[in-house]
């Protein structure tokens, strides 16, 4: 039977109190929102905090509404509530779609937007019970020294497995981080680092306090997800594509891949291949090839890695064709 290790559980009702509790707890303290990522990890002893500070009791982290033309979303909004929110459904249907593809209805009733954005990176050699990991002498992400996916590698290759994060990067969303020394605003892409262990640039004592979506004006975006089961699974490939139209021409474009690196991977060359075009077959073909080249899936998630790389072509093409079909 998998039980949680013992820890102290705290439920602050303000951000300031949460920060103070974290300062008191030190490196052995951690924040939790829905718990659907942290608690399984704790049961498998992948994370062993002595103090767990809940953010779900802080009212200011739970709202969602239109502000300054854009939309401000609290990170503790559950994925179910995010999908159902009228402003999100009407103006940011791709965010709702990506959130709806996360896991199961039960887990979306618990898991939050912030939790999915900060989701721990995943790997076949890491997401295992303590005994399983011990049997292979652990890996460098927890308790060990080696990366079993690439044994000569100095870094961890665990995979970014969020569905919503690639969409946030593609949309150019911003995150407000609040820490003991004040707050800062970071573009979504800059929250993430391509390192399986230190995959967030957020400091451990900082709290993701707000997600700011840009005004829903003049752009369109789609998200396509590859997974084994249609009912629920982590993405083995996610494609978020965003376009700004200038009449019939593409004024700007971003293509962001999930599930192929330790962070959401923007393929700048793919966006460049689309800019200035009318999204012809040739432009889509060029962007598809550009996205295929840097996608470097490793043998540490579901499916054969060469097949997953091939699927990059298929999914990027489908995403861009959908954007073309949606053009008004």
């Amino acid at each position: 039977m998998l039980r949680l290790p013992s820890f102290t559980y705290l439920q602050p009702n303000t951000l300031a109190l949460a920060l103070r509790m974290k300062a008191d707890a030190g490196p052995e303290g951690t924040y939790v929102a829905g718990g659907t990522d942290l608690y399984p990890n704790m049961k498998r002893r992948q994370q062993e905090p002595r103090t767990v500070i809940s953010l779900m009791t802080i009212p200011e982290l739970a709202g969602c509404g239109i502000r300054d033309g854009g939309c401000a979303v609290g990170p503790c909004v559950t994925l179910t509530d995010l999908c159902a929110h009228p402003a999100i459904r009407q103006h940011y249907d791709t965010v709702a779609h990506a959130a709806e593809l996360v896991s199961t209805p039960l887990l979306r009733n618990m898991g939050t937007l912030g939790g999915n954005l900060c989701l721990d990176t995943r790997c076949n050699y890491y997401d295992q019970t303590y005994e399983w990991r011990k049997a292979i002498d652990f890996c460098m992400k927890k308790d060990g020294h080696i990366c079993w996916v690439a044994p000569s590698s100095p870094r961890c290759w665990a995979v970014s497995s969020s569905d919503v994060a690639p969409v946030m990067v593609a949309l150019g969303a911003e995150f407000r981080l609040v820490g003991p020394n004040g707050e800062r605003i970071v573009p979504a892409a800059r929250l993430y680092a391509n390192d399986g262990i230190n995959y967030l640039t957020k400091q451990p004592d900082e709290i993701l306090a707000e997600v700011r979506l840009p005004p829903a004006d003049g752009w369109d975006a789609v998200y396509h997800k590859l997974r084994r089961r249609g009912s629920f699974d982590f993405p083995v490939l996610g494609v978020a594509a965003w376009l700004k139209w200038d009449g019939r021409r593409v004024a700007a474009a971003r293509v962001v891949l999930g599930g192929v690196a330790s962070r959401p991977q923007e393929v700048v060359e793919a966006g460049a291949a689309l800019t200035g075009t009318d999204l012809s077959d040739e432009a889509i073909g060029a962007a598809t090839e550009a996205a295929y080249r840097p996608a470097k899936p490793l043998d540490n998630t579901d499916f054969d890695l060469s097949w997953r790389k091939q699927m990059t072509r298929v999914y990027v093409k489908a995403a861009l064709e959908e954007l073309r079909a949606r053009r008004r």
């Binding site: 439920q11 659907t36 179910t80 209805p105 039960l106 618990m110």
Partner: peptide, 13 residues
């Protein structure tokens, strides 16, 4: 009223 997984909900919550 909402279905959740009791294995991932803390009693204290």
């Amino acid at each position: 009223g909402k279905p959740v997984l009791s294995c991932l909900v803390l009693g204290l919550a």
